[in-house]
Design a protein around this nucleic acid. Structure first.
Length: 342
DNA sequence: GAATCGTGGTT
DNA sequence: TAACCAAGATT
């Protein structure tokens, strides 16, 4: 660590002591580390997800399952339903698996290398938990850090190829002590000052160190162009009997895997659905909903029928007055609203 | 290494 | 408003 690197971490930590955000899963600067369960849970939820979106889910999970042992004992469908709406459902599937591993171990692993073995815990999350919950000096690189470091050192190589050099620079400015506070300080800086668009350089404690400061910081980090998003078409099927609707549980690890859902015609990221209903009958279109996923958009047509018989597809009758508790992902919650709105 | 995997807020 | 983006992991 050069003198300049040292100044960066020192000045950032000083800024953090005065400006740290107060977040439910976080200890105040300099305070004892929070419960590893809280740190882990928040880090999983925060993957590619905003603080505002996570807050109510974090509170709900902690209320229902106050400990990792309680979470480990919960059935999958309850965990999946509680996660509904937060997105990236493989996180919830891995959350359940990891909880059971930790419960079996008796406690959370305390090193970056051991944490990295938990399902759903990758390079970033292992480093973050090790630093924040256990005080290990780990190099924590998330999208905020990538942006801040790209600007600090005016890295012109585009992401994702620049990841290696970004990590090297991050390692150089990571202090031996308070690595957890340092990581959180970098993330606070990235989310509130060194923002993607319109960075607030006048408020930045690191501006005097920033090589991009006199250029155009908002142009960093450079990024490879992204592919265009196709529009797919599909159908979902609303099968109603008395005051219940037939819900399925989606299989596998693909789109919305493990989540309760309306039956559909097999639409996917690869192509349109078949438009073939699950059985012959009198189907009427109740309307359509548009939904945008990460790599494609979907126009979903919602087909409705009434029946007295048990559909031949695996599923369950779900009472309409308890539909909120089914834990439908947002796409199907939208479809349900469309039907029920008439 | 590139694709896959959600959602809601911001600009 | 369409595009961009967020405390990434997995295959």
């Amino acid at each position: 660590m050069t003198a300049s690197d040292n100044a960066i971490s020192t000045e950032l930590l000083d800024w953090y002591d005065r400006h740290a955000r107060d977040l439910p899963w976080r200890a105040a600067p300099g305070q004892p580390a929070p419960d590893p369960y809280r740190v882990w849970l928040s880090e999983i939820m925060l993957q590619q997800t905003t603080v505002a979106a996570v807050k109510p889910y974090f509170a709900k999970f902690l209320h229902i399952w106050p400990t990792v042992e309680a979470l480990a004992a919960a059935p999958d469908d309850q965990i999946m339903a509680a996660w509904a709406g937060l997105g990236y459902y493989s996180r919830a599937r891995n959350l359940a698996k990891a909880a059971r591993v930790v419960a079996e171990l008796g406690a959370f692993p305390e090193t970056e290398a051991e944490l990295r073995k938990l399902p759903g815990v990758g390079d970033y999350t292992a480093a973050a938990i090790a630093a924040i919950a256990f005080g290990e000096r780990a190099v924590v690189v998330d999208a905020n850090v990538e942006r801040v470091v790209s600007r600090l050192f005016a890295i012109e190589e585009p992401l994702p190829k620049s990841r290696k050099v970004i990590r090297t620079h991050t390692d150089a400015i990571t202090p031996e002590c308070r690595a957890g506070d340092f990581a959180q300080a970098m993330m606070d800086l990235g989310s509130s000052v060194c923002t993607s668009r319109s960075p607030q350089c006048l408020l930045c404690p690191l501006s005097r160190h920033c090589e991009a400061r006199m250029a155009e910081p908002e142009h960093f980090p450079f990024k490879a162009p992204k592919k265009e998003k196709p529009i797919r078409a599909g159908q979902a099927y609303w099968i109603e009997r008395e005051q219940s609707v037939w819900l399925v549980t989606r299989e596998g690890t693909g789109m919305l895997g493990g989540m309760r859902a309306l039956p559909d015609d097999g639409w996917s990221a690869k192509g349109d659905g078949s438009s073939i209903p699950p059985f012959d009958g009198e189907w009427a279109e109740a309307g359509s909903v548009s939904h945008s996923f990460t790599h494609f958009s979907l126009d979903l047509s919602v087909m409705v029928t009434r029946t007295e018989q048990e559909p031949a597809i695996k599923g369950e009758w779900w009472p309409l007055d308890r539909l909120e508790q089914a834990g439908l992902p947002t796409l199907f919650a939208k479809a349900a609203r469309r039907v029920l709105a008439g």
